[in-house]
């Protein structure tokens, strides 16, 4: 009973890491309920050619990135050079989901800055975006050959993020 005065100290010691953890987290980053589930299927007209279709069938059976982008999105501009590097390295096929954008602007963007995408789907009214739980851009999904979502990244993609969050997951999925 002599140690009773330690009780508040103990409670504080328990709460401290909880609050610290809460402070370190970015509340705008939401875990995706799609993780480790089948990615939603989609088929949309391509950005470049309205008569061509881009969809989930295109990358079935291989590892792929689905990158949500738009010309109004500053973060997309930031990650664009790295996406080009990834495409150059032929590290992984990248499919674009052009979200809530204008086709003309999007085409201009790809012409001027370079096109890292195997193909970009044109989601003008955001319907496919909603199916994928997209709530901002850029967002990048890592899709396994069997179509499950291995990872979702919520800010611009960088070499560091690629090495830390994407490659290990690809290797782990390969090893299974």
């Amino acid at each position: 009973m002599k140690l009773r005065f330690l009780l508040p100290v103990a409670v504080f010691a328990i709460l401290l890491p909880v609050f610290l953890f809460g402070l370190m987290r970015d509340p705008s980053e939401l875990p995706s309920p799609l993780l480790n589930k089948a990615a939603p299927e989609f088929a949309l007209p391509s950005v470049q050619d309205p008569s061509a279709t881009v969809g989930s069938d295109d990358y079935a059976g291989q590892f792929a990135l689905v990158n949500v982008w738009a010309t109004w999105c500053v973060g997309c501009r930031h990650e664009h050079d790295f996406l080009l590097t990834l495409a150059e390295r032929e590290a992984i096929p990248i499919y674009g989901l052009n979200w809530r954008d204008s086709r003309e602007e999007a085409k201009k963007w790809l012409e001027q800055l370079g096109d890292p995408y195997v193909a970009s789907a044109f989601d003008a009214d955001g319907t496919v975006g909603i199916d994928w739980g997209v709530y901002g851009a850029p967002e990048t999904f890592l899709i396994a050959p069997d179509g499950t979502v291995l990872h979702k990244h919520l800010s611009p993609l960088t070499e560091e993020v690629w090495q830390q969050d994407f490659l290990p997951r690809i290797n782990a999925a390969r090893g299974q």
Partner: peptide, 20 residues
Amino acid sequence: CLQCQNESLKDSNAFLAVDL
């Protein structure tokens, strides 16, 4: 509204809210 987390869909004019 996921785009502006302290608003409900009813109060938000963000385009995601419009879509939803």
